[in-house]
Computed example of a mutant assay.
Amino acid sequence: MRLLSLLAIFLPISLIAQDSGRKDFPNLGISFQIPDGWVGQENEAGYVMGSYTDPGIILMTAHQTQNLDQLRVEAQQGLHDNEGTSLSVDGEISKFSSNGLQALYQGSVGFQPAKAFAIGLVNPNGSGVSIIGMSTIDQFSDKHREVVTQIASSVKFSKVTVVESKSEWGNLLQNARLTYMNSYYSSGGSYGGYSTGGGYSDKEIIDLCAQGYFNHSSNSSMAFDTGGGFGSSFDQNAGAGKWKVIVNNQGQDVLQLNFYNGEVYEYVLSLQDNKTYLNDRRFFRTYGNVTDDGPNCN
Rank of each mutant, 00 (worst) to 15 (best):
Y52T: 10
Q236L: 13
G40S: 07
L87W: 09
R282L: 15
S218H: 10
D292R: 10
Q272E: 14
Y267C: 00
R145K: 15
D90E: 12
N289Y: 15
Y267K: 06
S220F: 01
S153D: 10
G21S: 07
N274Y: 11
L68K: 09
R145A: 03
V147G: 00
F25T: 03
I57V: 12
I206C: 00
Q174W: 02
F284R: 15
G37E: 02
V155N: 00
L178K: 05
T85P: 08
N43G: 05
Y47L: 03
F25D: 11
K159Q: 15
S127C: 08
Y191V: 04
M181I: 10
F284D: 15
G37T: 04
Y267W: 08
F25K: 08
G110R: 06
L104Y: 14
L4E: 11
L278M: 13
I151L: 04
G110N: 10
G40Q: 06
T286I: 08
W169E: 03
R72F: 13
G227D: 03
N219A: 08
G120K: 08
V148Q: 05
L11Y: 05
S201W: 02
I119R: 01
D138A: 10
Q256I: 00
E263M: 14
Q174M: 06
F284Q: 13
D225T: 05
N27I: 07
S186V: 07
R285M: 15
N274I: 02
T179I: 13
A152P: 04
E83I: 09
D280L: 10
L208M: 01
G228V: 05
F259G: 10
D207F: 01
Q112E: 09
L4M: 14
I205G: 00
N249T: 12
V89H: 02
A223W: 02
S186A: 06
G46S: 06
D273A: 13
T179P: 00
G126V: 03
S233M: 04
Y265R: 10
N125R: 15
Q66D: 06
I93Y: 01
S94I: 10
E92A: 15
T179K: 14
G56H: 09
F117I: 00
Y213N: 12
I9A: 12
G193Y: 02
N43V: 01
G50R: 07
S135N: 14
D138Q: 11
S165P: 04
T53R: 12
I119T: 01
D273V: 07
W169V: 00
Q250D: 15
Q236R: 15
V109A: 12
N249Q: 14
A114C: 02
D207S: 06
Q77P: 00
A152W: 06
V129W: 05
T286C: 09
A238H: 10
A75R: 09
L4R: 14
I119W: 04
R285W: 05
C297Q: 11
Y185E: 03
G56T: 05
Y194C: 02
G46E: 07
S186E: 12
L172K: 15
T196S: 11
N215L: 05
S165G: 06
G251W: 07
I30K: 04
S14W: 07
R285G: 01
D138S: 12
N261V: 08
S130N: 13
K275W: 01
D235S: 14
Y260H: 07
I30V: 13
Q236H: 13
Q250W: 05
Y185A: 01
F224W: 12
K95P: 07
G228A: 15
A210L: 00
